[in-house]
Write a protein that binds this DNA or RNA. Structure first.
Lengths: 155, 155
DNA sequence: GTACTATGTTAGATATGGCTAACAACATGA
DNA sequence: TCATGTTGTTAGCCATATCTAACATAGTAC
């Protein structure tokens, strides 16, 4: 198959999101999960930014095909946006869980770090570190000796 | 002691560096370690950016008191810059070592991720995760059963 | 149904961090 | 010492991501 210049294609065209844009997408996902849709002012409040900043981000996400959004409309996620949001949140949860439950970081400290790492970790590292975290957590829960050593170490 | 408006003070005045600036500082440290000083064109080459971009960064680092730099001069680190660079590199090495030796990421993959994480990880998380990584590595090296399970898991 | 309040949009500013292209300074060899 | 090449600087451009302030739309309450 010959791909012609300017031809609209499938997955390869997906525009990579910046950390900031991923954050907006994640926030939209959370709101949509709660209410079925998101509003600009919600997002602005949740991220502590101005509505105008949200507006800019929404236009970028809409152009990229991640959200359904036209002026004054309710915001929902496309398939693409849903997938992307889920992947980001999966990263967050994996990190956050480990930082809280094993490393015993405070909720805020864990969330701050997880929220930064979720945007920059490569797929390959995430795949491996997920497995490693699961493995560690299982050991932690089932091996009292391992748990004691770790708790002592990190106290 | 009363601190007057505009008064120049000590550590509290330290300007926080952006990830980009930390990267420049790290690169300068590496060059200074090798040659005793750094040149702009070296830094530009090492980071694959234009000299003009380096120039901007150097002025910011010099203003912040991290480097000794005046136009056309050789670049060296101040005490502040040396400390900051060492902290960044320590983070890099800790991450990189674990990603390579335990998670068995490729050198490039490990370096890419470490180089991103070094700029965003909090001091508290770094303190704890360092201990945890050390603990894990010791187990890995001394407990053949643990090593085998981990190697199987991550292959 | 009109006026007020919510919410959403736009225009224009700032800061970072990159770029190119043109220019300036320095160092070296003939 | 001066021409040349390397190195460093400056000016001006672009994109992201924020902001404020002014404006537009929508919804509600009387």
């Amino acid at each position: 198959m010959v791909v012609e210049a300017g031809m609209t294609s499938s997955i390869e065209d997906t525009v990579t999101l910046t950390p900031s844009q991923e954050n907006y997408l994640k926030t939209i996902y959370i709101k949509v999960s709660q209410d079925g849709y998101a509003k600009m002012s919600d997002i602005a409040n949740m991220l502590s930014v101005q509505k105008s900043s949200v507006n800019t981000a929404l236009n970028i996400l809409a152009r990229g095909g991640y959200i359904n959004y036209t002026p004054y409309s309710q915001i929902t996620l496309t398939e693409l946006g849903l997938d992307a949001a889920k992947r980001i949140i999966e990263k967050f949860k994996t990190m956050d869980n480990f930082f809280c439950n094993i490393l015993k970081l405070s909720k805020e400290e864990a969330a701050t770090n997880s929220c930064r790492i979720e945007h920059i970790i490569s797929e390959e590292l995430f795949r491996k570190i997920s497995k490693f975290f699961e493995f560690t957590e299982e050991l932690y829960l089932n091996d009292p000796d391992y748990k004691k050593k770790l708790d002592d170490l990190l106290s």
